[in-house]
């Protein structure tokens, strides 16, 4: 009886077991390598395409800043929501975060931007400020002046019949200069962000 009791006590109150029971700790949890953390610079050259700023859903989270080494995107911690859209949008792979770049490479995915220009014809008074201010128009027809009247049909924005009209929307770069210059807030530019899957044969 005494022997078996001693045996039981010895079995139950093993030193290792007691230590484990009283001082148990789960393993310190590190951040896994695949965690999509705040984007980091990869060291590739930024070409100031500003796709990251266009794709970013959080206000004030990313800025492209001119430094002595050239343009550089800067992430503002406290604003960034770690969605990784800037990493996906960048055409040069300047940013990296988690496994986004690798998975984009293996899955052949990319983000495509397109822009939609809406003109509220009730508010538009056909002043042509938008067409004159537009930097894309300026490249096509540098002579364009007051009123938005132009010689070519190749323009992005032009005034016809007293109203502004978006002719070649595919040329829009989404700078929103027209929105800033419209006196009546009649024009609005909407960004359409689309995830595309490139088929193998295209590459």
């Amino acid at each position: 009886m005494a022997l078996s009791l001693k045996y039981y006590l010895k079995e139950i109150f093993r030193i290792e077991w007691l230590k484990k029971f009283l001082f148990a700790r789960t393993a310190p949890l590190g951040t896994p390598t695949y965690f999509r953390n705040f984007p980091e610079l990869t060291g590739k050259t930024c070409t100031h395409a500003l796709f990251c700023m266009m794709a970013c859903p959080a206000p004030g989270a990313i800025e492209v800043i001119k430094t002595p080494e050239g343009w550089q995107p800067r992430i503002h911690i406290g604003h960034c929501i770690r969605c990784g859209l800037c990493v996906e949008a960048c055409p040069n792979g300047v940013l990296s975060s988690g496994r986004i770049l690798e998975s984009m490479f293996y899955d052949n995915t990319a983000l495509s931007f397109s822009f939609r220009i809406d003109v509220d014809t009730d508010k538009c008074m056909g002043c042509g400020n938008c067409a004159v201010a537009c930097p894309v128009n300026k490249l096509i027809d540098a002579q364009m002046s007051f009123g938005g009247r132009a010689s070519t049909d190749e323009l992005l924005l032009m005034v016809s019949a007293g109203k502004c009209r978006a002719v070649h929307v595919e040329k829009c770069t989404g700078c929103k200069t027209c929105e800033d210059n419209c006196p009546n807030k009649a024009i609005s530019v909407t960004r359409l962000l689309e995830a595309i899957h490139c088929p193998e044969e295209d590459l």
Binding site: P59, G78, H79, C80
Partner: peptide
């Protein structure tokens, strides 16, 4: 979180 720091997505 971001909200008490900057307002995050709601700071519009």
């Amino acid at each position: 979180g971001n909200c008490p720091i900057s307002g995050c997505l709601y700071n519009r």
